[in-house]
Amino acid sequence: MRLLRTFHLRPTAHPLVRIGSAYGGYVVPLPLVAPDWIAYSVGIGEDASFDLDLIRRTRCTVRAFDPTPRAARYLAALPERPPQLTYHAFGIWNRDGEVRFFAPRDPSHVSHSIHNLQGTSTSIAVPMKTLASAMREAGDARIDLLKLDVEGAEYDILDDLLATAVRPRIVCAELHDPWPRRNLALVRRLRAAGYQLVALEPPTVTLVRLGG
């Protein structure tokens, strides 16, 4: 993340607020988020604190995507799931179809990876859809906030996003690649698409699209 610090964080007119738990939280220009916003939260695991806090504070709609069975059980067992939170039992990637999701080394952990970040041999088959396909299925004409915690697939998803006309106003992502130059290149592509880096809490970044 050191190279990302070469980008000056752009001041925002909206106060930055960290919402969610220490493990699953992100920094968001919270007053920018309106009740009619649609947020896509990709990768839930067993921590929906960001999603629940976002809904509690703004009353916006949050669509949660995670194909892992443990995530499905966790969300089903939430004692008071607000009506603004909808769960979709597939993942988001750069193509539609079934893929192998590789398990973490520690069986007590929940986060699986398309790119097998932990080099394990255990995997499950899970359904994936592009953001465009997910939007069509949900009947959404736009995404206002996109949150990605997807164990390395964030690069694929954001490259696919930039190839479309969909431009969320806020992008929050956890960047899993240890090579700083890949992260720098990603932020440069997002900047070229009209985004500015407003928060950097390694390994998470928050970008806001200007003029939208």
Rank of each mutant, 00 (worst) to 15 (best):
A77E: 06
V62L: 08
T86L: 15
R191L: 02
P79N: 14
L190R: 06
D144G: 03
L200H: 11
R182F: 10
S41D: 15
R81A: 13
A71T: 14
D53F: 01
S21C: 01
S123G: 00
Q84N: 12
P104N: 03
T6M: 13
L78F: 10
R169M: 08
Y74W: 10
V208G: 08
F65G: 11
E98M: 13
H14C: 08
Q84G: 07
R188Y: 06
N94G: 12
V205E: 00
D53C: 01
Y23I: 11
S121W: 13
S21N: 06
T204P: 00
P203V: 12
M1C: 08
L54C: 05
G91V: 02
A89R: 14
L78P: 02
M135W: 05
L207F: 02
D140Q: 09
L3W: 11
A193N: 05
P107G: 04
T58S: 12
P202Q: 05
D106I: 10
G24R: 01
R105W: 05
A138R: 04
A163R: 15
E137D: 15
E151H: 06
H176Q: 05
L207A: 01
L158S: 04
A71M: 02
C60N: 07
S49L: 05
K147P: 10
P82N: 05
P82Q: 12
T130E: 04
I38H: 15
R5C: 07
N94S: 15
S49Q: 00
R10H: 14
Q84A: 15
A76E: 14
R167Q: 00
V62A: 08
A125W: 05
L75Y: 07
G194E: 08
R5N: 12
F101N: 08
A173H: 00
E98Q: 14
R169F: 03
I38W: 10
L207H: 04
A132E: 07
A76Q: 14
V171L: 14
L3G: 10
A125K: 09
I114E: 06
L4W: 03
I170R: 07
R2W: 15
R10F: 11
L186Q: 07
R181A: 13
I19E: 02
L197H: 04
F7A: 04
L30Y: 01
D53A: 13
G212Y: 10
V28Y: 03
D36Q: 14
A138K: 02
P180E: 13
S121E: 15
I38R: 14
R70G: 06
P83I: 11
L9I: 12
C172G: 08
S21H: 06
F90W: 15
V42F: 04
R189T: 09
N94P: 04
L148M: 00
R2E: 14
R142L: 07
M135A: 06
V198L: 08
N183I: 03
G152W: 02
E201F: 05
L158H: 05
T120G: 07
G139R: 00
L78A: 11
L9G: 06
L200A: 03
N94T: 03
R5Y: 12
A153T: 08
V150T: 13
A76Y: 05
E151C: 07
S121Y: 12
L148C: 03
A141F: 08
H176P: 00
P180V: 00
V99D: 10
C60A: 13
P35W: 02
G20C: 09
T164N: 01
V198A: 05
A163W: 04
P180Y: 01
P35R: 03
F102R: 01
I170E: 05
D159I: 03
R57T: 09
